[in-house]
Design a protein around this nucleic acid. Structure first.
Lengths: 255, 255
DNA sequence: GACTGTGAAATCGTTCACAGCC
DNA sequence: GGCTGTGAACGATTTCACAGTC
Protein backbone atom coordinates (compact mmCIF):
# COMPACT_ATOMS: atom_id res chain seq x y z
CA UNK A 1 0.00 0.00 0.00
CA UNK A 2 0.99 3.54 -0.23
CA UNK A 3 3.52 4.10 2.39
CA UNK A 4 4.40 7.39 3.86
CA UNK A 5 1.63 9.56 2.63
CA UNK A 6 1.11 12.85 4.34
CA UNK A 7 -2.34 12.07 5.53
CA UNK A 8 -3.05 15.49 6.79
CA UNK A 9 -6.63 14.98 5.88
CA UNK A 10 -7.64 16.14 2.46
CA UNK A 11 -10.43 18.74 2.37
CA UNK A 12 -13.84 17.42 1.36
CA UNK A 13 -14.01 19.68 -1.62
CA UNK A 14 -10.76 18.29 -2.89
CA UNK A 15 -11.79 14.69 -2.34
CA UNK A 16 -14.88 15.37 -4.41
CA UNK A 17 -12.71 16.54 -7.27
CA UNK A 18 -10.18 13.75 -7.28
CA UNK A 19 -12.43 11.46 -9.31
CA UNK A 20 -12.75 14.26 -11.80
CA UNK A 21 -9.00 14.48 -12.18
CA UNK A 22 -8.81 10.75 -12.52
CA UNK A 23 -11.22 10.88 -15.40
CA UNK A 24 -9.32 13.73 -16.97
CA UNK A 25 -6.07 11.82 -16.61
CA UNK A 26 -7.48 8.88 -18.50
CA UNK A 27 -8.36 11.20 -21.31
CA UNK A 28 -4.90 12.69 -21.32
CA UNK A 29 -3.30 9.27 -21.24
CA UNK A 30 -5.36 8.19 -24.19
CA UNK A 31 -4.18 11.19 -26.11
CA UNK A 32 -0.73 9.76 -25.59
CA UNK A 33 0.76 12.49 -23.42
CA UNK A 34 3.17 11.22 -20.79
CA UNK A 35 2.88 14.39 -18.75
CA UNK A 36 0.31 17.07 -18.22
CA UNK A 37 0.40 20.54 -16.76
CA UNK A 38 -2.02 21.84 -14.19
CA UNK A 39 -3.54 23.96 -16.94
CA UNK A 40 -3.99 20.91 -19.16
CA UNK A 41 -5.58 18.90 -16.41
CA UNK A 42 -7.72 21.82 -15.44
CA UNK A 43 -9.07 22.14 -18.95
CA UNK A 44 -9.83 18.44 -19.15
CA UNK A 45 -11.49 18.40 -15.76
CA UNK A 46 -13.37 21.64 -16.16
CA UNK A 47 -11.83 23.47 -13.24
CA UNK A 48 -9.25 26.17 -12.80
CA UNK A 49 -5.51 25.52 -12.80
CA UNK A 50 -4.77 26.98 -9.40
CA UNK A 51 -7.32 24.66 -7.90
CA UNK A 52 -5.74 21.69 -9.56
CA UNK A 53 -2.36 22.57 -8.14
CA UNK A 54 -3.69 23.16 -4.68
CA UNK A 55 -5.71 19.99 -4.74
CA UNK A 56 -2.81 17.90 -5.91
CA UNK A 57 -0.51 19.44 -3.37
CA UNK A 58 -2.67 17.87 -0.67
CA UNK A 59 -1.66 14.47 -1.94
CA UNK A 60 1.94 15.42 -1.30
CA UNK A 61 2.15 15.51 -4.98
CA UNK A 62 4.73 14.79 -7.53
CA UNK A 63 4.68 17.56 -10.03
CA UNK A 64 7.81 18.60 -11.80
CA UNK A 65 8.42 22.28 -12.14
CA UNK A 66 8.83 23.32 -15.68
CA UNK A 67 7.30 20.06 -16.85
CA UNK A 68 4.02 19.20 -15.20
CA UNK A 69 2.76 15.96 -13.73
CA UNK A 70 3.62 12.48 -14.84
CA UNK A 71 0.33 11.06 -15.97
CA UNK A 72 0.93 7.50 -14.87
CA UNK A 73 2.28 8.44 -11.47
CA UNK A 74 -0.45 10.89 -10.76
CA UNK A 75 -3.13 8.48 -11.84
CA UNK A 76 -1.85 5.90 -9.47
CA UNK A 77 -1.45 8.40 -6.64
CA UNK A 78 -5.01 9.57 -6.92
CA UNK A 79 -6.31 6.03 -7.20
CA UNK A 80 -4.38 5.12 -4.10
CA UNK A 81 -5.69 8.11 -2.24
CA UNK A 82 -9.25 7.26 -3.12
CA UNK A 83 -8.69 3.65 -2.18
CA UNK A 84 -9.71 2.48 -5.59
CA UNK A 85 -7.02 -0.04 -6.25
CA UNK A 86 -8.33 -2.45 -3.71
CA UNK A 87 -11.55 -3.08 -5.56
CA UNK A 88 -14.80 -2.78 -3.66
CA UNK A 89 -17.69 -5.17 -3.59
CA UNK A 90 -21.05 -3.48 -3.73
CA UNK A 91 -24.55 -4.64 -2.87
CA UNK A 92 -27.50 -2.99 -4.55
CA UNK A 93 -31.01 -3.05 -3.16
CA UNK A 94 -34.03 -2.31 -5.29
CA UNK A 95 -34.10 -3.62 -8.81
CA UNK A 96 -36.60 -1.25 -10.29
CA UNK A 97 -35.66 0.48 -13.48
CA UNK A 98 -33.12 2.68 -11.77
CA UNK A 99 -31.60 -0.23 -9.90
CA UNK A 100 -31.28 -2.17 -13.11
CA UNK A 101 -29.69 0.73 -14.89
CA UNK A 102 -27.21 1.14 -12.06
CA UNK A 103 -26.40 -2.54 -11.97
CA UNK A 104 -25.44 -2.44 -15.59
CA UNK A 105 -23.65 0.90 -15.42
CA UNK A 106 -20.22 0.40 -16.93
CA UNK A 107 -18.75 3.37 -15.11
CA UNK A 108 -18.78 1.45 -11.83
CA UNK A 109 -16.91 -1.61 -12.96
CA UNK A 110 -14.05 0.23 -14.57
CA UNK A 111 -13.36 2.25 -11.45
CA UNK A 112 -12.94 -0.74 -9.27
CA UNK A 113 -16.49 -1.24 -8.07
CA UNK A 114 -18.08 -4.62 -8.60
CA UNK A 115 -21.74 -5.06 -7.93
CA UNK A 116 -21.64 -8.44 -6.31
CA UNK A 117 -25.28 -8.94 -5.42
CA UNK A 118 -28.66 -7.36 -5.99
CA UNK A 119 -31.66 -7.55 -3.71
CA UNK A 120 -35.32 -6.76 -3.67
CA UNK A 121 -38.20 -7.43 -1.38
CA UNK A 122 -40.78 -8.12 -4.06
CA UNK A 123 -41.07 -11.86 -4.26
CA UNK A 124 -41.86 -11.77 -7.93
CA UNK A 125 -38.54 -10.06 -8.56
CA UNK A 126 -36.55 -12.52 -6.53
CA UNK A 127 -35.01 -15.14 -8.75
CA UNK A 128 -35.03 -13.03 -11.89
CA UNK A 129 -31.81 -12.01 -13.53
CA UNK A 130 -30.32 -8.55 -13.76
CA UNK A 131 -27.35 -8.81 -16.01
CA UNK A 132 -25.36 -11.76 -14.73
CA UNK A 133 -26.81 -11.53 -11.24
CA UNK A 134 -29.80 -13.25 -9.76
CA UNK A 135 -32.01 -11.07 -7.61
CA UNK A 136 -32.04 -12.24 -4.00
CA UNK A 137 -34.45 -11.45 -1.23
CA UNK A 138 -33.36 -8.75 1.19
CA UNK A 139 -33.46 -11.31 3.95
CA UNK A 140 -30.35 -12.79 2.44
CA UNK A 141 -28.43 -9.58 2.99
CA UNK A 142 -26.59 -10.61 6.14
CA UNK A 143 -25.24 -13.83 4.74
CA UNK A 144 -24.28 -12.41 1.39
CA UNK A 145 -22.66 -9.27 2.73
CA UNK A 146 -20.64 -11.29 5.19
CA UNK A 147 -19.68 -13.97 2.70
CA UNK A 148 -18.61 -11.53 0.03
CA UNK A 149 -17.10 -8.98 2.37
CA UNK A 150 -19.21 -6.22 0.97
CA UNK A 151 -18.64 -2.78 2.48
CA UNK A 152 -20.68 -0.55 0.21
CA UNK A 153 -24.41 -0.56 -0.39
CA UNK A 154 -26.53 1.22 -2.95
CA UNK A 155 -30.16 1.96 -2.20
CA UNK A 156 -32.40 2.26 -5.23
CA UNK A 157 -35.72 1.55 -3.60
CA UNK A 158 -38.76 3.78 -3.25
CA UNK A 159 -38.45 6.36 -0.48
CA UNK A 160 -40.82 4.45 1.77
CA UNK A 161 -38.59 1.44 1.96
CA UNK A 162 -35.28 3.23 2.08
CA UNK A 163 -34.75 3.66 5.82
CA UNK A 164 -35.62 0.06 6.44
CA UNK A 165 -33.28 -1.16 3.78
CA UNK A 166 -30.63 1.19 5.08
CA UNK A 167 -30.93 -0.29 8.56
CA UNK A 168 -30.73 -3.78 7.16
CA UNK A 169 -27.65 -2.98 5.14
CA UNK A 170 -25.96 -1.59 8.21
CA UNK A 171 -27.00 -4.51 10.34
CA UNK A 172 -25.52 -6.75 7.71
CA UNK A 173 -22.21 -4.96 8.02
CA UNK A 174 -22.17 -2.39 5.26
CA UNK A 175 -20.40 0.81 6.29
CA UNK A 176 -20.86 3.09 3.28
CA UNK A 177 -24.13 3.78 1.56
CA UNK A 178 -25.10 5.58 -1.60
CA UNK A 179 -28.76 6.54 -1.50
CA UNK A 180 -30.82 7.19 -4.60
CA UNK A 181 -34.15 7.22 -2.82
CA UNK A 182 -35.56 10.73 -2.47
CA UNK A 183 -35.55 10.90 1.29
CA UNK A 184 -33.32 11.65 4.23
CA UNK A 185 -31.73 8.66 5.84
CA UNK A 186 -30.29 8.41 9.28
CA UNK A 187 -27.29 6.30 9.94
CA UNK A 188 -25.24 5.59 13.03
CA UNK A 189 -21.85 7.14 13.49
CA UNK A 190 -19.17 5.40 11.55
CA UNK A 191 -21.39 4.77 8.57
CA UNK A 192 -20.91 7.01 5.59
CA UNK A 193 -23.84 8.17 3.59
CA UNK A 194 -24.03 10.01 0.35
CA UNK A 195 -27.03 10.74 -1.74
CA UNK A 196 -27.99 11.42 -5.29
CA UNK A 197 -31.36 12.98 -5.82
CA UNK A 198 -32.24 13.21 -9.45
CA UNK A 199 -35.17 15.54 -8.99
CA UNK A 200 -33.20 17.94 -6.84
CA UNK A 201 -30.80 18.62 -9.65
CA UNK A 202 -33.66 19.47 -11.95
CA UNK A 203 -35.13 21.79 -9.38
CA UNK A 204 -31.88 23.66 -9.12
CA UNK A 205 -31.87 24.04 -12.88
CA UNK A 206 -35.42 25.23 -12.64
CA UNK A 207 -34.37 27.96 -10.26
CA UNK A 208 -31.81 29.28 -12.69
CA UNK A 209 -34.05 28.91 -15.67
CA UNK A 210 -36.81 30.70 -13.85
CA UNK A 211 -34.60 33.58 -12.89
CA UNK A 212 -33.09 33.77 -16.32
CA UNK A 213 -36.41 34.66 -17.83
CA UNK A 214 -37.28 36.87 -14.89
CA UNK A 215 -34.85 39.71 -15.11
CA UNK A 216 -36.34 41.48 -12.18
CA UNK A 217 -38.66 41.18 -9.29
CA UNK A 218 -37.73 39.69 -6.01
CA UNK A 219 -34.52 37.79 -6.08
CA UNK A 220 -32.40 38.61 -9.00
CA UNK A 221 -29.20 37.29 -10.36
CA UNK A 222 -26.33 39.55 -9.62
CA UNK A 223 -24.23 40.38 -12.63
CA UNK A 224 -20.92 38.67 -12.27
CA UNK A 225 -17.61 40.15 -12.96
CA UNK A 226 -15.07 37.70 -14.15
CA UNK A 227 -11.50 38.43 -13.56
CA UNK A 228 -9.05 38.53 -16.39
CA UNK A 229 -6.73 35.58 -15.92
CA UNK A 230 -7.77 32.91 -18.35
CA UNK A 231 -10.75 31.94 -20.38
CA UNK A 232 -10.01 32.70 -23.95
CA UNK A 233 -12.64 30.27 -25.05
CA UNK A 234 -15.65 30.75 -27.11
CA UNK A 235 -17.56 28.49 -24.87
CA UNK A 236 -17.46 29.52 -21.31
CA UNK A 237 -18.94 28.60 -18.07
CA UNK A 238 -22.59 28.63 -17.55
CA UNK A 239 -24.31 30.76 -14.99
CA UNK A 240 -21.83 32.25 -12.64
CA UNK A 241 -19.76 31.91 -9.59
CA UNK A 242 -17.10 29.40 -9.04
CA UNK A 243 -17.27 25.81 -9.79
CA UNK A 244 -16.95 23.14 -7.23
CA UNK A 245 -19.15 20.25 -7.45
CA UNK A 246 -20.45 17.96 -4.92
CA UNK A 247 -22.47 15.33 -6.54
CA UNK A 248 -21.50 13.96 -9.81
CA UNK A 249 -19.98 11.63 -12.22
CA UNK A 250 -16.96 9.84 -13.30
CA UNK A 251 -15.20 7.99 -15.93
CA UNK A 252 -14.02 9.10 -19.19
CA UNK A 253 -13.39 7.73 -22.55
CA UNK A 254 -11.19 4.97 -21.34
CA UNK A 255 -11.62 1.32 -21.85
CA UNK B 1 -13.14 45.18 -5.35
CA UNK B 2 -16.50 44.50 -6.67
CA UNK B 3 -18.68 47.29 -7.72
CA UNK B 4 -22.08 47.89 -6.39
CA UNK B 5 -23.99 44.76 -7.12
CA UNK B 6 -27.65 44.30 -6.46
CA UNK B 7 -26.88 41.29 -4.36
CA UNK B 8 -30.40 40.30 -3.65
CA UNK B 9 -29.74 36.87 -4.96
CA UNK B 10 -30.07 33.69 -3.00
CA UNK B 11 -26.76 31.97 -2.31
CA UNK B 12 -26.08 28.89 -4.39
CA UNK B 13 -25.78 26.73 -1.33
CA UNK B 14 -29.21 27.82 -0.24
CA UNK B 15 -30.76 27.19 -3.63
CA UNK B 16 -29.38 23.68 -3.52
CA UNK B 17 -31.16 23.08 -0.24
CA UNK B 18 -34.54 24.48 -1.14
CA UNK B 19 -35.64 21.27 -2.85
CA UNK B 20 -34.68 19.46 0.30
CA UNK B 21 -36.94 21.65 2.36
CA UNK B 22 -39.69 21.17 -0.11
CA UNK B 23 -39.44 17.45 0.28
CA UNK B 24 -39.35 17.78 4.04
CA UNK B 25 -42.41 20.03 3.97
CA UNK B 26 -44.38 17.42 2.08
CA UNK B 27 -43.53 14.95 4.76
CA UNK B 28 -44.59 17.34 7.47
CA UNK B 29 -47.81 18.13 5.66
CA UNK B 30 -48.56 14.46 5.34
CA UNK B 31 -48.12 14.07 9.05
CA UNK B 32 -50.91 16.60 9.36
CA UNK B 33 -49.03 19.46 10.98
CA UNK B 34 -50.16 22.91 9.86
CA UNK B 35 -46.95 24.54 11.06
CA UNK B 36 -43.40 23.48 11.59
CA UNK B 37 -40.46 24.98 13.46
CA UNK B 38 -37.02 25.43 12.01
CA UNK B 39 -35.91 22.58 14.22
CA UNK B 40 -38.66 20.34 12.90
CA UNK B 41 -37.86 21.15 9.32
CA UNK B 42 -34.19 20.73 9.99
CA UNK B 43 -34.73 17.25 11.35
CA UNK B 44 -36.86 16.26 8.38
CA UNK B 45 -34.40 17.69 5.89
CA UNK B 46 -31.28 16.45 7.62
CA UNK B 47 -29.67 19.81 8.22
CA UNK B 48 -29.21 22.09 11.16
CA UNK B 49 -31.88 24.50 12.40
CA UNK B 50 -29.83 27.67 12.11
CA UNK B 51 -29.19 26.87 8.50
CA UNK B 52 -32.88 26.43 7.86
CA UNK B 53 -33.66 29.80 9.35
CA UNK B 54 -30.93 31.55 7.47
CA UNK B 55 -31.90 29.89 4.22
CA UNK B 56 -35.55 30.73 4.62
CA UNK B 57 -34.77 34.29 5.54
CA UNK B 58 -33.34 34.76 2.05
CA UNK B 59 -36.77 34.13 0.63
CA UNK B 60 -37.99 37.01 2.73
CA UNK B 61 -39.97 34.36 4.36
CA UNK B 62 -42.80 34.53 6.71
CA UNK B 63 -42.10 32.57 9.81
CA UNK B 64 -44.00 33.40 12.95
CA UNK B 65 -42.00 33.91 16.09
CA UNK B 66 -43.11 31.66 18.83
CA UNK B 67 -44.89 29.45 16.31
CA UNK B 68 -42.83 28.42 13.35
CA UNK B 69 -43.61 28.36 9.66
CA UNK B 70 -46.96 27.75 8.05
CA UNK B 71 -46.45 24.62 6.04
CA UNK B 72 -48.72 25.51 3.17
CA UNK B 73 -47.40 29.03 2.80
CA UNK B 74 -43.80 28.00 2.99
CA UNK B 75 -44.30 25.21 0.50
CA UNK B 76 -45.75 27.59 -1.96
CA UNK B 77 -43.06 30.21 -1.32
CA UNK B 78 -40.28 27.75 -2.00
CA UNK B 79 -42.02 26.37 -5.06
CA UNK B 80 -42.39 29.86 -6.38
CA UNK B 81 -38.79 30.68 -5.70
CA UNK B 82 -37.63 27.61 -7.53
CA UNK B 83 -39.97 28.34 -10.40
CA UNK B 84 -41.65 25.00 -10.05
CA UNK B 85 -45.22 26.05 -10.34
CA UNK B 86 -44.91 26.90 -13.95
CA UNK B 87 -44.24 23.33 -15.02
CA UNK B 88 -41.26 22.64 -17.22
CA UNK B 89 -41.12 20.57 -20.35
CA UNK B 90 -38.04 18.41 -20.57
CA UNK B 91 -36.36 16.64 -23.47
CA UNK B 92 -34.27 13.57 -22.77
CA UNK B 93 -31.60 12.26 -25.10
CA UNK B 94 -30.28 8.74 -24.87
CA UNK B 95 -32.71 5.97 -24.13
CA UNK B 96 -30.30 3.41 -22.79
CA UNK B 97 -31.15 1.81 -19.50
CA UNK B 98 -30.41 4.97 -17.58
CA UNK B 99 -32.41 7.11 -19.96
CA UNK B 100 -35.35 4.77 -19.66
CA UNK B 101 -35.14 4.77 -15.91
CA UNK B 102 -35.06 8.55 -15.87
CA UNK B 103 -37.96 8.84 -18.27
CA UNK B 104 -40.09 6.80 -15.95
CA UNK B 105 -38.84 8.37 -12.77
CA UNK B 106 -41.86 9.47 -10.81
CA UNK B 107 -39.94 12.05 -8.84
CA UNK B 108 -39.75 14.32 -11.86
CA UNK B 109 -43.40 14.44 -12.70
CA UNK B 110 -44.57 15.29 -9.23
CA UNK B 111 -42.21 18.23 -8.97
CA UNK B 112 -43.49 19.86 -12.08
CA UNK B 113 -41.20 18.37 -14.68
CA UNK B 114 -42.75 16.63 -17.64
CA UNK B 115 -40.58 14.69 -19.99
CA UNK B 116 -42.17 15.68 -23.24
CA UNK B 117 -39.97 13.88 -25.72
CA UNK B 118 -37.16 11.34 -25.82
CA UNK B 119 -34.48 11.03 -28.45
CA UNK B 120 -31.77 8.70 -29.56
CA UNK B 121 -29.47 8.44 -32.52
CA UNK B 122 -29.62 4.68 -32.85
CA UNK B 123 -32.03 4.00 -35.66
CA UNK B 124 -33.16 0.75 -34.13
CA UNK B 125 -34.26 2.67 -31.04
CA UNK B 126 -36.16 5.28 -32.97
CA UNK B 127 -39.81 4.44 -33.08
CA UNK B 128 -39.80 2.25 -30.01
CA UNK B 129 -41.78 3.26 -26.96
CA UNK B 130 -40.47 4.38 -23.61
CA UNK B 131 -43.42 4.64 -21.34
CA UNK B 132 -45.98 6.66 -23.25
CA UNK B 133 -43.40 8.32 -25.46
CA UNK B 134 -42.11 7.29 -28.83
CA UNK B 135 -38.38 7.61 -29.30
CA UNK B 136 -37.51 10.16 -31.94
CA UNK B 137 -34.33 10.69 -33.85
CA UNK B 138 -32.06 13.44 -32.53
CA UNK B 139 -32.47 15.20 -35.86
CA UNK B 140 -35.97 16.03 -34.77
CA UNK B 141 -34.72 17.99 -31.78
CA UNK B 142 -35.08 21.48 -33.27
CA UNK B 143 -38.66 21.03 -34.34
CA UNK B 144 -39.79 19.30 -31.20
CA UNK B 145 -38.04 21.64 -28.79
CA UNK B 146 -39.49 24.64 -30.55
CA UNK B 147 -42.95 23.20 -30.90
CA UNK B 148 -43.18 22.13 -27.28
CA UNK B 149 -41.30 25.10 -25.85
CA UNK B 150 -38.83 22.88 -24.08
CA UNK B 151 -36.21 24.68 -22.03
CA UNK B 152 -34.52 21.83 -20.19
CA UNK B 153 -32.60 18.91 -21.61
CA UNK B 154 -31.30 15.76 -20.00
CA UNK B 155 -28.32 13.97 -21.50
CA UNK B 156 -28.17 10.26 -20.79
CA UNK B 157 -25.95 9.20 -23.64
CA UNK B 158 -22.49 7.62 -23.55
CA UNK B 159 -19.68 10.10 -22.89
CA UNK B 160 -18.54 10.04 -26.50
CA UNK B 161 -21.80 11.41 -27.79
CA UNK B 162 -22.50 13.86 -25.01
CA UNK B 163 -20.84 17.03 -26.29
CA UNK B 164 -22.44 16.59 -29.65
CA UNK B 165 -25.85 16.09 -28.18
CA UNK B 166 -25.25 19.01 -25.87
CA UNK B 167 -24.50 21.26 -28.83
CA UNK B 168 -27.59 20.07 -30.62
CA UNK B 169 -29.78 20.68 -27.62
CA UNK B 170 -28.47 24.18 -27.33
CA UNK B 171 -28.84 24.83 -31.02
CA UNK B 172 -32.41 23.69 -30.70
CA UNK B 173 -33.04 26.25 -28.00
CA UNK B 174 -32.59 24.45 -24.73
CA UNK B 175 -31.04 26.65 -22.05
CA UNK B 176 -30.61 24.31 -19.11
CA UNK B 177 -28.99 20.92 -19.25
CA UNK B 178 -28.63 18.09 -16.80
CA UNK B 179 -25.79 15.81 -17.82
CA UNK B 180 -25.54 12.19 -16.76
CA UNK B 181 -22.74 11.32 -19.15
CA UNK B 182 -19.42 10.92 -17.39
CA UNK B 183 -17.59 13.71 -19.11
CA UNK B 184 -17.04 17.44 -18.98
CA UNK B 185 -19.27 19.46 -21.24
CA UNK B 186 -18.73 22.94 -22.52
CA UNK B 187 -21.64 25.27 -22.97
CA UNK B 188 -21.95 28.85 -24.08
CA UNK B 189 -22.71 31.60 -21.66
CA UNK B 190 -26.32 31.77 -20.73
CA UNK B 191 -26.75 28.04 -20.72
CA UNK B 192 -26.88 26.42 -17.34
CA UNK B 193 -25.32 23.04 -16.88
CA UNK B 194 -25.44 20.63 -14.01
CA UNK B 195 -24.15 17.14 -13.82
CA UNK B 196 -24.75 13.92 -11.98
CA UNK B 197 -22.00 11.38 -12.06
CA UNK B 198 -22.94 8.16 -10.45
CA UNK B 199 -19.46 6.71 -10.23
CA UNK B 200 -17.97 9.81 -8.67
CA UNK B 201 -20.19 9.42 -5.67
CA UNK B 202 -18.99 5.88 -5.20
CA UNK B 203 -15.40 7.01 -5.40
CA UNK B 204 -15.97 9.56 -2.68
CA UNK B 205 -17.43 6.83 -0.52
CA UNK B 206 -14.44 4.72 -1.36
CA UNK B 207 -12.17 7.43 -0.05
CA UNK B 208 -13.92 7.50 3.28
CA UNK B 209 -14.20 3.76 3.49
CA UNK B 210 -10.55 3.43 2.71
CA UNK B 211 -9.53 5.90 5.37
CA UNK B 212 -11.90 4.36 7.87
CA UNK B 213 -10.03 1.12 7.83
CA UNK B 214 -6.77 3.00 8.09
CA UNK B 215 -7.47 4.96 11.24
CA UNK B 216 -4.21 5.59 13.09
CA UNK B 217 -2.21 8.76 13.12
CA UNK B 218 -2.90 11.73 15.29
CA UNK B 219 -4.05 13.87 12.43
CA UNK B 220 -7.43 12.41 11.95
CA UNK B 221 -10.70 13.88 11.02
CA UNK B 222 -11.67 16.03 13.90
CA UNK B 223 -14.71 14.50 15.50
CA UNK B 224 -17.34 17.04 14.90
CA UNK B 225 -18.37 18.82 18.00
CA UNK B 226 -21.98 19.52 18.20
CA UNK B 227 -22.96 22.13 20.63
CA UNK B 228 -26.55 22.31 21.45
CA UNK B 229 -29.56 21.49 19.41
CA UNK B 230 -29.36 18.79 16.90
CA UNK B 231 -31.37 16.05 15.42
CA UNK B 232 -32.88 13.34 17.53
CA UNK B 233 -29.68 11.41 17.36
CA UNK B 234 -28.59 7.95 18.15
CA UNK B 235 -28.58 8.04 14.48
CA UNK B 236 -26.84 11.04 13.23
CA UNK B 237 -26.27 12.18 9.80
CA UNK B 238 -23.22 10.83 8.13
CA UNK B 239 -20.53 12.73 6.38
CA UNK B 240 -23.03 14.73 4.59
CA UNK B 241 -22.33 18.31 5.19
CA UNK B 242 -23.13 20.29 2.21
CA UNK B 243 -24.80 19.29 -0.92
CA UNK B 244 -24.32 19.41 -4.54
CA UNK B 245 -23.22 22.59 -6.00
CA UNK B 246 -22.50 24.56 -9.01
CA UNK B 247 -21.43 23.48 -12.30
CA UNK B 248 -19.28 25.28 -14.62
CA UNK B 249 -16.74 25.13 -17.29
CA UNK B 250 -14.15 27.27 -18.75
CA UNK B 251 -11.94 27.08 -21.65
CA UNK B 252 -12.35 24.96 -24.63
CA UNK B 253 -9.50 22.80 -25.50
CA UNK B 254 -9.14 19.38 -26.87
CA UNK B 255 -11.95 17.86 -28.76
C1' DG C 1 -41.77 30.26 26.79
C1' DA C 2 -41.16 29.13 22.16
C1' DC C 3 -39.49 30.53 18.15
C1' DT C 4 -37.79 33.48 14.17
C1' DG C 5 -34.55 36.73 11.92
C1' DT C 6 -30.01 38.31 11.65
C1' DG C 7 -25.62 40.56 12.71
C1' DA C 8 -21.12 38.91 13.84
C1' DA C 9 -17.76 35.21 14.36
C1' DA C 10 -15.84 31.08 12.79
C1' DT C 11 -14.91 27.97 9.24
C1' DC C 12 -14.21 26.40 4.80
C1' DG C 13 -13.01 26.91 -0.01
C1' DT C 14 -11.12 29.49 -3.99
C1' DT C 15 -8.04 32.35 -6.32
C1' DC C 16 -4.02 35.30 -6.56
C1' DA C 17 0.58 36.08 -7.01
C1' DC C 18 5.04 34.97 -6.68
C1' DA C 19 9.29 32.46 -5.13
C1' DG C 20 11.77 28.57 -6.60
C1' DC C 21 12.95 24.65 -9.70
C1' DC C 22 13.65 22.55 -14.26
C1' DG D 1 10.48 30.16 -20.39
C1' DG D 2 7.36 27.02 -18.50
C1' DC D 3 5.54 25.23 -14.54
C1' DT D 4 4.73 23.72 -9.62
C1' DG D 5 3.92 24.60 -4.68
C1' DT D 6 2.08 27.59 -1.38
C1' DG D 7 1.38 31.68 1.71
C1' DA D 8 -1.82 35.11 1.89
C1' DA D 9 -6.03 37.55 0.27
C1' DC D 10 -10.44 36.93 -0.69
C1' DG D 11 -15.05 35.15 -0.89
C1' DA D 12 -18.70 32.06 0.39
C1' DT D 13 -21.00 29.35 3.78
C1' DT D 14 -21.92 27.79 8.29
C1' DT D 15 -22.74 28.45 12.95
C1' DC D 16 -23.35 31.16 17.07
C1' DA D 17 -25.78 33.89 19.99
C1' DC D 18 -29.12 36.95 21.07
C1' DA D 19 -32.55 40.68 20.42
C1' DG D 20 -37.23 40.80 19.15
C1' DT D 21 -42.00 38.96 18.37
C1' DC D 22 -46.03 36.22 19.32
Amino acid sequence: MSTLEPVTSIPQATVARLPLYLRALHQVAEAGNPTVSSAGLAAAAGVNPAKVRKDLSYLGSYGMRGIGYDVATLTQQISASLGLERGWGVALVGVGRLGQALTNYAGFANRGFAIKAVFDSATDQVGTKVGPLTVQHVNELPQVVAAQKIAIGIIATPAEAAQDVCDQLIAAGVTSILNFAPCVLFVPKGVDLRKVDLAIELQILSYHEHHKTLPDRGTRLAPRRRRGSSVPSRRTRAISGALPTRTTRTKAVDE
